[in-house]
Simulated scan of single mutants.
Amino acid sequence: MKQQALAQARTDAAAAAAHFCTTAADYVTAVDRYGDVLTATAPTVGDVQTAGTDLEQPRADATAAAQAAVDTQAAVVTAEKELAAAQAAAAAANTTAAGSSSATSPTPSPSPAPTVPPATVTRVKQAETEFTAAQQGISAQTPLRQAAQQFNAAAVALEMSWLALFADAGCLTDEAEKSAQKAVHDYTAALQQSLSDTGYFSGKVDGVYGPSTVDAVQALQKAHGLPVTGTVDKATQEALQSDLQAKGGAAAQEELASTAAVQQTLKLAGFWDGPVDGRWTPALTEALKEFQTELDVPATGTVDAATIAALEKAIAEAGKPTPSPTPSRSATSTAPEPSASTPKASTQT
C-alpha cells in the first residue's frame, strides 16, 4: 500500500510540475507585453493605467499551480518517509523471525527532486510587490517619460524573476536549458563589456550576472536618474548606448587628432608628403620608421616614449643658435668651383 501511495504521489507531483510550467510560461508571455524582454511591443498610456487586469488571471493560475507543485512535492516526501518506515518495520520483523543472518536491508528510495531555491521565490514575491507599487505610483500627473521608465523597469524585473523561477523549477528541457544558458551567458558577457567600456564595471567579463554586474547596472541607472533595479530595461539600455556612443565619439576624435599630429610633424620634418587627414595607413607607418631611424631610436612604427624623447631633444637643439665663423674674402675668392666629379647639394622643392 505504501509503495502504491508513493507511486501515486510521484505521478501527482509530475502532473503538478508540468501544469506549473505551462501556466508560468503563459504568465511570462503576458508580462512580456510590458517588459519587452522576449518580444518587442509598444504599450500605450492606457495600457500603463489599466495594466494588471490582463495579468490577474495568468498570475492567479501560475500562483495556484506553483502552490500545487509545492504541495504535491511535499506529499512525495511524506510518502517516501512512510514507505521507508514501513520497510524498516518489515525488516525488523524479519530479523526477529528468521535471525539477523537472513535479514535484508530495505531498498532505498530515490531522493526527491530538488525544490526551487527560496531566494528565487522571494525575488518573485518582491518583484510582484514592486510591479504593483509602480503601477499604483503612476497617476495622470506623472510625466509620460517617467511613467514609461518606471513601469517598464518594474515589468522587466518581474519578468526576469519569473524566468528564473521557470528555469529553477526544471521547466526547461536539457536542450532548451543549454540554449537558454548560452543566450544568457552571451548577453551578460556583452553587457559586462559595454559596462566596462563605459567605466561602470571593473570585474571580469565572465557572462555571469552576479552582484558586481548588478552593481554596475545600478550605477548606470543612478548616473542617469533612472529607477535603480539592477536589471536592464528600455531606458537603461538607451542610457548605456548613449554612454557608449559618447565615449566612442570622444575616443575617435582623440585618435583622429593624434594621427593628424603625427602626419603634420612628419610633413614638417620632410618625411611625409601625404595628406594630413587623421588616417593611419601603412605608408604613414613606414614614414614614421624612417623618421625614427633619423632620430637614432628603434624603428617601431609607433609613437613610443623613445621617439617622443628624441624628437623633443632634436627640437630643443634646433632652437639653440649655432655660431659659425664668417669666411674671409680671400677664402671666398679662392674656393674651387664644383666640377663634374663633385656632386652639387640637392635642393628640395
Rank of each mutant, 00 (worst) to 15 (best):
A17H: 12
N94E: 12
V217A: 01
Q135I: 07
S109V: 14
F201E: 00
A167Y: 03
G248A: 13
V303R: 10
Q49I: 13
V124I: 08
G52E: 05
F291G: 06
E56N: 07
A89D: 14
L256D: 11
P275V: 02
L158H: 05
A90G: 14
A299T: 06
Q87P: 06
M160F: 04
A5S: 10
A62C: 11
A90L: 12
Q193R: 11
V297P: 06
G278H: 05
T120F: 04
K313Q: 15
T95Y: 07
L195Y: 02
A17E: 15
A113N: 10
S102I: 04
G225E: 00
C21S: 15
D296P: 00
D186Y: 05
R33N: 10
T347Y: 09
L6S: 11
Y34L: 08
H224F: 00
Y187D: 14
A305D: 15
A119H: 07
A299N: 02
D233N: 14
V28G: 05
A18T: 15
K289T: 06
A90T: 13
E82V: 06
F151A: 01
E56V: 10
G52N: 10
F291L: 04
A85F: 07
C21K: 07
R145Q: 12
A216S: 03
A84L: 09
D186P: 06
V121K: 13
A269P: 04
G35F: 05
K320Q: 15
P336F: 07
A252S: 13
A18H: 08
L256W: 09
F291W: 14
Q135C: 04
P298G: 02
A261Q: 15
A60S: 13
A180Y: 11
A127L: 08
P106N: 07
L195P: 03
K289G: 08
A219Y: 00
E337G: 09
R279F: 07
Q292V: 09
S330Y: 05
T53A: 15
E128I: 11
D186H: 03
T63M: 04
L240A: 03
T265H: 09
T107C: 02
V232F: 02
T332S: 12
N94W: 09
D206Y: 01
A148G: 02
V48Y: 13
K344F: 06
A89P: 07
